[in-house]
Amino acid sequence: MSKPNPTDRIYSKDHEWLKDNGDGTALVGITDYAQEMLTDIVFVELPEIGKKIAQGEAMAVVESVKSVSDVYAPASGEIVETNKVLEETPELINKDAFGDGWIVKIKLSDKEELKSLMGADEYEKLTKEEKH
């Protein structure tokens, strides 16, 4: 069973979470549901610092033994930090997708976009529908 989706952040339909830091930046990762679907994550490709990304654009890659999956930007902006630890310990995403397994920090360029993302309850509903 996936861990509950924290209510201090918002979610995309592609299973990314975004946590607004309130200083113009936001942390982004994939949800616990997503890591559970991917299972054993063995490789993470991170974007370059300074890279500009548009909402919905593929910005990182997460690989399990079997599969290769894109991680999409839940909001537009510029990559200001990446979680370099994931290059050596990609399994951190399996262990703690909502915490130590964060992937990038984005400097948001359009806060209006955040309105298109879902709250925890709405996201939970989406994952339940996907399971059936």
């Binding site: 299972t39 054993d40 063995v42 399990s64 033994v65 079997k66």
Partner: peptide, 11 residues
Amino acid sequence: PVQYTNVIDEH
């Protein structure tokens, strides 16, 4: 079945 729990454990 491609996996029951995960590939690494089964491997």
